[in-house]
Write a protein that binds this DNA or RNA. Structure first.
Ligand SMILES: NC(=O)c1ccc[n+]([C@@H]2O[C@H](COP(=O)([O-])OP(=O)(O)OC[C@H]3O[C@@H](n4cnc5c(N)ncnc54)[C@H](O)[C@@H]3O)[C@@H](O)[C@H]2O)c1
Ligand SMILES: NC(=O)c1ccc[n+]([C@@H]2O[C@H](COP(=O)([O-])OP(=O)(O)OC[C@H]3O[C@@H](n4cnc5c(N)ncnc54)[C@H](O)[C@@H]3O)[C@@H](O)[C@H]2O)c1
Lengths: 211, 211
DNA sequence: ATAGGCTTGTGATTGTGATGTCAAGCACTA
DNA sequence: TAGTGCTTGACATCACAATCACAAGCCTAT
């Protein structure tokens, strides 16, 4: 009954989308604690937002709550997972198996959310052929064909910034449509490919700056 | 002459602050290429924003450009570094020297931006005493006193999510005033402490979600 | 069955940031 | 020195997101 019907046409604020993941994370936390029902007020407090914001965000997609009671944790979790396209396993390619890349390969948190690194590439001969956490590092020179063969559409880049733009270009040519990059630089690629750049140094800088 | 005088009272948009780091990163890139002067238009293109946005962002802090010419790369770089409090070395503590923590310790990108990891803590006895990239891992049980003794005000947390809230609490008690966490969970600590949470799984989720 | 007490969902309002526009101002040229 | 062309800086406007406030609706107790 209550579901994302007829409202999808409306444009969803960018910020709302961001918060949905926050809510989902908190809901999972509540599930672990065995809490079945939660009012917008408490979900809001946990996520450091206002309760009206929570309700409005959810209202873009349907009516998931029960007046006088709140939201059913399991139910809302499922709705959000469905809204956010998180109810399927997504194959991911990792490019660059250095310090950071290795850590990412061994990180279970990605798989918990439905992301599975199914291929890893590096340009360093010494790394090619190494098996790290069930994934064998492949030769980066054959990256495009391997990605296309396995129909991988999402990539994580952990290569040096100097290499990043070129690698991103190659990923674009391999029909990848989303890239998460850790290189602190701009990537000039077609706008139909979604990019997210995690820039640790900038994040730190933002944190300490008092402007 | 042109400087941040009399305008500081006005509140700076959060988004502006974020973009300043983007501009700074691009400027550094231009410096490397030996480019001395750049108009807002081209800086904007490189950062994927509108030229009027660049000018407006900068205008919050002063008049740094020359009409008909553009901005002097070196000059603007210095102004931004000064505005963002990036002209000093910031001591940082790392808590949790696991897969990710080790990668961070070996990451030169932080030091390039003025952040120096001067202490690392772990609860695992096997890790205590290990020397990784010039830093010796210390016992986490003595974290508070060591952080206060060295007057460290910024911390990076790379501990399991289950431990993160408690560790954050302890960092708060050690008078740290900014924390960068990689744990995918909320940290309930006093609001006067700045928190930034890098949640890789959520970032990935946002990237693939087509809502 | 009905009343009372909560909490949701949403239209209205406020607040904030993005963007368009153009006069002002500098460099360069003759 | 005056004219030309370009770019900045600021103001005005537009667009969007946060927040308020309250009617609607569900549950429980009596
Ligand atoms: N180490 C960290 O903690 C950390 C943190 C934040 C951001 N980063 C960023 O992540 C990136 C990687 O960091 P790192 O510390 O793992 O560096 P690293 O040097 O340890 O690893 C980079 C890897 O990329 C490989 N590589 C280079 N060119 C390649 C190409 N064209 N194709 C495929 N692979 C290629 C190298 O062989 C190497 O194995 C850098 O851009 C860095 O700025 C690192
Ligand atoms: N590995 C990755 O690539 C990656 C990526 C994104 C986020 N994360 C997140 O970063 C965090 C760390 O990840 P990891 O892969 O390095 O995990 P890990 O298990 O390899 O390392 C965690 C380290 O923290 C230490 N530790 C545990 N409790 C502690 C305490 N109370 N005080 C001090 N140290 C303590 C452990 O001894 C261990 O060395 C996790 O929250 C994870 O979700 C990891």
């Amino acid at each position: 009954m209550a579901s994302n019907v007829g409202k999808m046409a409306r444009s969803i604020p960018e910020e709302t989308r961001t918060r949905l993941f926050l809510y989902l994370r908190e809901l999972r936390c509540l599930q672990k604690k065995g809490i079945c029902t939660i009012p917008s007020q408490r979900l809001a407090e946990a996520c450091h937002v206002k309760s009206s914001t929570v309700r409005k965000d959810l209202s873009y997609f349907g009516e998931f709550g029960v007046r006088g009671v709140g939201y059913e944790v399991d139910g809302l979790t499922n709705e959000l997972r469905s809204i956010l396209n998180l109810d399927q396993i997504v194959k991911v390619a990792l490019v660059g198996v250095g310090n950071l890349g290795k850590a990412l390969l061994g990180f279970p948190g990605l798989e918990d959310e439905g992301f599975k690194i199914v291929a890893a590439f590096d340009a360093d001969e010494r790394k090619i052929g190494q098996k790290i956490d069930r994934v064998t590092v492949e030769d980066a020179s054959r990256m495009e064909e391997r990605i296309e063969a396995q129909d991988i559409r999402v990539a994580i880049m952990a290569v040096p910034a100097s290499e990043a733009p070129a690698v991103a270009q190659r990923l674009a040519e391999a029909n990848v449509n989303a890239i998460l990059s850790f290189a602190p630089c701009e990537l000039n690629i077609p706008p139909d490919i979604k990019i997210s750049c995690v820039d640790l140094a900038s994040e730190m800088a933002r944190l300490v700056c008092c402007v």
